[in-house]
Amino acid sequence: MANSADPAAPARAAIGHTVWPARVAREPVNQPMINAWCDAIGETNPRYRAGFAPAAMLPVWTMRKFTPDPARVEGMAILQPFDAAGYVGVAATNLEQEYLRELRLGERVTEEATLEAVSDEKKTALGSGFFLTILHEFRVDSGEVVGRMRFRILKFRAREMAATARPAVAAAPPGRLRPPVNRDNAFFWEGIAAGRLLVQRCTGCGTLRHPPGPMCPQCQSLEWDTVQSSGRGTLYSFVVAHHPPIPPFEYPLPILLVDMEEGWRLVANAFQIERPALEIGMPLAVEIVEVEPGFRLPFFVRAAGG
C-alpha cells in the first residue's frame, strides 16, 4: 500500500468544516430530564426546580447513542485516511466544556461540530499519531451560542506496529517487576546479567546458601564468595498461576521450585515445557534468557535425557 502521502492531509483540508450534520435536540429543555440528571449527580440547588437547567447538562440535550466503532460514526469520514495509513488506534485525550449561560425550560438546543485543528505527527506513549480537535457549538433557536465543547482525540499507530518503521518511543510497556537489588543480593543479579548462575558460599565453613544473606547461618561468618552452579537440578515443587493476570506474563504461568544438584533451591519460570509434562522429580537445567532489552532471568528447561 502506497501511503507515503501525509495521512493528515485530507483532515487538514477539512478544518473549519462540519464533521457531521447539525444535531437538533429531540426534546426542548424540560424538567423531567433535569430532575433525573440532578438526582444522578446529587445536585440539590433549588434553581434547577425554578426554570433553569444546570449548565453542565449542556451535551445531554443532543447526546446520541454511543457507537463503539468509530468507522460507523456518521460523518467521521475524516478518520478513514488515518486508518488506511495504519493509524488505526483512537484514544480520547481531552474534553473541555465552556458554558456561556444556563438554559431555560422550553429552549431547544442544536449542536454543530466542526473540525477545529489537526496537529503535526506527535510521538506519544501509545504510539505515533495526530491530535484532532473537534469543536461542538450549542445554540438555541435564536442562533445565540450558549456553550461550547472541545473534544480532542489521538489517531495513532500503536507502538509495536511502529517499531520497525521508527525508533522506539518513550514509556516502555509494563515489564516484569525487577528484583530490588542491594548489597546482599547484587552478585546474583550481576551474575545473571553476565550469563552466569552464581550461588553464595561461606568462606568460613563452605556452606552454600540461597537466597543469599550477609551472614552464614551455620557459622556466623560474614565472609563469603560465590561459585558458579552447574544449573542442573530436579523439580521439587511447582505452581501454575492463572489469576489474577499480571502484565506482562502469559497464562497459565508455571513457576518452579528446583533442587539444584549442589544442594540449594531456586525459583524460576519454565521455558518451553508444556504444563502437563511438569512432574516432581523431573530433571531440569537453567538457561539464562534476555526477557526484555538489558534484563536477563534464569529459566528452567528440560535437561538432556529428561
Binding site: P179, P180, V181, N185, A241, I246, L253, I255, V267, I280
Partner: peptide, 27 residues
C-alpha cells in the same frame, strides 16, 4: 530485606498469597 526477599519471586510472577501457598500445597 523484606523487599529483597520478595525479589526472588516477583520477576517470575509469583506475586500473590495464593501462589506462594500453592507451592507448599503441591509438595
Amino acid at each position: 530485606a523484606e523487599l529483597v526477599q520478595f525479589g526472588w519471586y516477583m520477576p517470575y510472577g509469583l506475586m500473590t498469597p495464593a501462589s506462594w501457598v500453592a507451592m507448599l500445597a503441591r509438595r
